[in-house]
Amino acid sequence: MEEEEEQQKHEQASACDSNGTPIHVLAVDDCFVDRKIVGKLLEKASFKVTSADSGKKALEILGFSQDKVEKSSYNDQKIDIILTDYCMPEMNGYDLLMAVKGNSNVKSIPVVIISSEYDPQRISRCLANGAEDFLRKPLQHKDLQKLRSYVKPSAPVPKTGTKRKVMLELIPESGTAETRPRIAGVAVA
């Protein structure tokens, strides 16, 4: 029981960005049941989910109107990743991918395509045109970690192990090393 709780806490923490905000997924699928299953799986893993029943509806959520993106609309949603079904009427997952990657305001959003059909040509075409991944339906628990890894950090992560610069006035003019006093067992470098 404790192991399950620990696993759940780890998943919840890793479903957040570097600021602790839940990763926001735009889940696009024309099938109501598939949309609900994916939504529940993502929510259980602490993702924030917005659902759309078509590629056109997804574009509206992203702020597209008359072939342009309204920044204010997109910024209100702050979508971190798009998870879209491939086979949908009117606008399939590939068309949605091309619309997103063709717009400078939203092209940095990772797009992952899912499908129950395994078509190597379709898969390679999507990957060659900017899809992060092409996953098989039904979405599995192990796929959630992949989704997390595709999300770009929202703020730059500080580098560790970098050299610090020393102000010139702190370096003695003699060029020789000075000994510094130690304070109660604390070494001062």
Results as ranks from 00 to 15, higher is better:
Ser108Ile: 08
Gly20Trp: 04
Lys36Leu: 13
Thr160Met: 11
Tyr118Glu: 13
Cys31Trp: 01
Lys71Val: 11
Tyr118Trp: 12
Cys87Leu: 12
Ile114Asn: 00
Lys107Cys: 08
Glu117Tyr: 05
Asp53His: 05
Val186Lys: 15
Cys87Gln: 15
Ala13Met: 12
Cys31Gln: 04
Ser174Lys: 11
Ser46Lys: 12
Leu139Cys: 10
Ser14Gly: 02
Leu26Val: 10
Asn19Glu: 15
Gln7Trp: 06
Ser149Gln: 14
Gly39Cys: 09
Pro153Met: 10
Glu117Leu: 10
Gln66Tyr: 15
Leu42Asp: 00
Gly93His: 00
Ile37Ala: 02
Tyr74Glu: 05
Met88Asp: 00
Asp80Lys: 01
Asn103Val: 06
Val188Met: 15
Gly130Pro: 01
Asn129Tyr: 06
Ile81Val: 15
Glu3Cys: 03
Pro22His: 06
Asn105Arg: 13
Glu117Phe: 07
Val106Lys: 00
Val33Ala: 03
Ser73Val: 14
Glu117Val: 11
Val188Ser: 10
Leu144Val: 04
His141Tyr: 15
Lys48Gln: 12
Glu178Asn: 11
Leu42Glu: 01
Tyr150Cys: 08
Ile81Gln: 00
Leu170Met: 08
Leu144Ile: 08
His141Gly: 03
Val49Asn: 10
Leu144Ala: 01
Lys78Glu: 13
Leu97Phe: 00
Gln12Val: 05
Lys152Gly: 03
Arg164Gly: 09
Ser72Tyr: 13
Met98Leu: 12
Gly161Gln: 12
Ser73Leu: 15
Leu147Arg: 01
Glu3Ser: 07
Ser51Pro: 04
Ile171Ala: 13
Ala189Thr: 13
Lys78Leu: 13
Ile113Glu: 01
Lys146Gln: 11
Leu97Cys: 03
Glu11Phe: 01
Gln66Trp: 14
Thr179Arg: 06
Val25Met: 04
Cys87Lys: 12
Glu2Arg: 03
Met88Ala: 02
Val111Gly: 00
Arg164Met: 08
Pro120Met: 09
Ile61Asp: 07
Glu70Leu: 03
Tyr74Gln: 05
Gln7Val: 06
Asp85Ile: 08
Arg182Met: 13
Thr176His: 12
Ser154Met: 08
Pro172His: 09
His24Phe: 06
Asn19Arg: 14
Thr176Cys: 08
Val106Leu: 01
Asn103Pro: 03
Thr160Tyr: 07
Glu60Trp: 07
Arg180Tyr: 08
Met91Gln: 05
Tyr94Lys: 01
Lys68Cys: 11
Pro181Phe: 10
Val33Gln: 04
Ser154Ile: 09
Asp29His: 07
Arg136Tyr: 04
Ser14Asn: 14
His24Gln: 12
Thr160Asp: 09
